[in-house]
Amino acid sequence: MVVTQISVFLENKSGRLAELTEALAEAGINIRALSVAETVDYGVLRMIVDNPDLACERLRQTGFTVTETPVLALEIPDRPGGLAYVIRVLSDAGINVEYVYAFVGKAQENAIVVLRLEEIERAVELLGKRGIEAVPAEKVYRM
């Protein structure tokens, strides 16, 4: 169930993002989903890639600070209210969503979102009962 997300600390200075994406390109790693959180001085780049272990290794070798974070990928109906419903279920259950971003998936019936939350297993169970399925990690990496 749990998908491995790679988070990278990035100082806001020119060329850093280029270096990072080039390192991944050279290793033949494909980025599946990506989001950036930023402040004036630094940002955190979050990514789902097809080979998280290799990506981590390469980025560390290139001198980046990297951590792996467990996240949840959910397949939700691609229509108004689709995400709202999921968030409401989690909120009512007292599960706090740290952050959420959308997947850059290929055109399909459902949308895929990535969520960072504290209690992944409980969320999966709650949402599963309501017909919202978590996307298995292997499937996410191959998408």
Partner: peptide, 15 residues
Amino acid sequence: EVSAEIFSDEMRKLG
């Protein structure tokens, strides 16, 4: 410097 040990994915922890 932010070390690998303390780097958190969550912005509020860094903040």
